[in-house]
């Protein structure tokens, strides 16, 4: 079992965890009475509003929780814009900010739309659809095992890596970090995004 690191910063790890209430942005963006996130132009406008908020924060890495829990209807066009296209934008090397995303959605009401758009783009995301964070979207069995272990341990230091995940632990966690599904610090520590979001 890996040593469970204390809370606090992970090296020069992500700071300033924050949440964005997507329903509030929907209300600001379109006149939807029911917090319904539908139509592609609405999704695009909401994504741009989220990006706008992200550019005003620190240039250092940080974790953002996109909270969909007050959104009622999430259609596929909006899931594509607000989840998939946002992830794609911040996976690029020329991303406008060093952001890691967590998503909080509402069970089966949103899960299907999110999974479909992730699958279509070959993306994965860390998402709480009720009952804790899980990895949604395409990933190999080894990636899922590594992600689940990290999520359980919250943080894994270099001395515990082999014990927790075997010889392939480092490349697996580095791979997850490249997919923006985990944080890999310069000193060889890995941290689960959900743990970083809980960091005060």
């Amino acid at each position: 079992m890996a040593e469970r690191l204390k809370s606090g910063r992970c090296g020069e790890g992500p700071t300033r965890p924050a949440a964005i209430d997507v329903a509030a942005i929907v209300t600001d963006t379109v006149a939807s009475r029911g917090h319904n996130l539908v139509t592609r132009p609405t999704g695009r406008a909401v994504r741009e509003a989220i990006e706008q908020r992200l550019t005003t924060t620190s240039p250092s890495p940080f974790v953002i929780l996109l909270d969909f829990t007050r959104v009622r209807i999430l259609d596929f066009s909006c899931a594509d814009e607000v989840v998939a296209k946002l992830l794609l934008r911040y996976q690029d090397s020329d991303r406008p900010a060093n952001v890691f995303f967590l998503f909080r959605a509402v069970g089966e009401m949103h899960r299907h739309a999110v999974e479909e758009v992730l699958d279509r783009h070959g993306l994965a995301a860390v998402c709480d659809v009720g009952g804790g964070f899980q990895l949604l979207g395409p990933a190999t069995t080894e990636e899922r095992r590594a992600w689940n272990t990290l999520e359980r341990c919250e943080r894994i230091g270099p001395r515990d890596l082999a014990g927790a995940l075997g010889d392939l632990g480092e490349p697996l966690l580095r791979g997850l970090a490249r997919r923006r599904l985990a944080y890999w610090s310069g000193n060889g520590e890995a941290a689960a995004l959900s743990a970083l979001a809980r960091t005060p």
Binding site: D75, F76, M109
Partner: peptide
């Protein structure tokens, strides 16, 4: 009960087909 959400999504997508 969740069907109302799925139905709304269908309705949204078919209507968007007209617009787009």
């Amino acid at each position: 009960p969740a069907a109302v959400v799925q139905f709304s999504v269908i309705l949204s997508e078919v209507c968007q087909n007209i617009v787009e």
